[in-house]
């Protein structure tokens, strides 16, 4: 692949992320990796479901149960932020198709900011629980909850670092066929984080407050 090819919006290929052999491999490979993440999160979800509301004998369920702990407004705010960040990364990919590098960087930047907001809320939530005595070592329930939601949070952190690095590394380079797949794959990862979150807010929070 030659980095010196100068592209214009006219000759920028329609599927820039799949225009080179490396891009194609990366595209397939990353999807395959995501299918493995599906199984990884399924294991965590299943563990959480098996352990929710269970703790040492005499654990105060009026205080430490899914019903008593979770607060829907916060979960709702987090959901909205993350869903919106999914849309903003779609916008970034839209601009990539039109060879608008500035658009890509801007929308990816917005995605990062939204991701940071989400992460802030999640940290606040965790802090709140720990303060209420529901720490990581509190019970099997607390361990399972923090591990499941925390693993998702870890994915958010990785995604943020990744996208930030991308924005930074390509500032001077502009769009080319070498970094187009990188952007595309990062946005796939970000969407996947949202996919997992859809299940988290449904299975953990919504079904949790129902008891």
């Amino acid at each position: 692949m030659d980095l010196n090819t100068k592209f214009t919006p006219q000759n920028w290929p329609e599927h820039a992320e799949q225009a080179t052999m490396e891009g194609k491999n990366k595209f397939v490979g990353f999807w395959i990796f995501l299918s493995c993440e599906v199984v990884l999160f399924a294991s965590l979800f299943a563990t959480y479901l098996a352990l929710k509301d269970s703790g040492p004998a005499g654990m105060d369920l009026a205080k430490y149960s899914t019903k008593a702990l979770y607060e829907l407004p916060l979960a709702f705010a987090m959901t909205m932020i993350l869903l919106t960040s999914s849309l903003t990364s779609v916008y970034a990919m839209y601009h990539m198709k039109n060879f608008n590098f500035k658009g890509v960087q801007t929308w990816m930047g917005i995605t990062v900011i939204l991701g940071l907001c989400f992460l802030g809320l999640e940290i606040y939530e965790f802090y709140h629980y720990v303060h209420a005595g529901f720490g990581y070592r509190h019970s099997a329930f607390s361990s399972a909850f923090f591990t499941l939601v925390g693993t998702h949070g870890l994915h958010v952190i990785i995604g943020l670092v990744w996208i930030s690095c991308l924005i930074f590394r390509n500032m001077k380079r502009g769009l080319n066929l070498y970094n187009a797949p990188k952007y595309f794959v990062a946005s796939l990862y970000w969407h996947f984080i949202d996919v997992v979150w859809v299940f988290i807010f449904t299975v953990v929070y919504l079904m949790g407050v129902l008891g």
Partner: peptide
């Protein structure tokens, strides 16, 4: 790709069922 994704989903479903 869709074969792998849905295959993963199917296997994931058996975990839920079991647990």
């Amino acid at each position: 790709i869709s074969f792998f994704m849905w295959g993963g989903a199917l296997i994931a479903f058996t975990f839920f069922l079991c647990f």
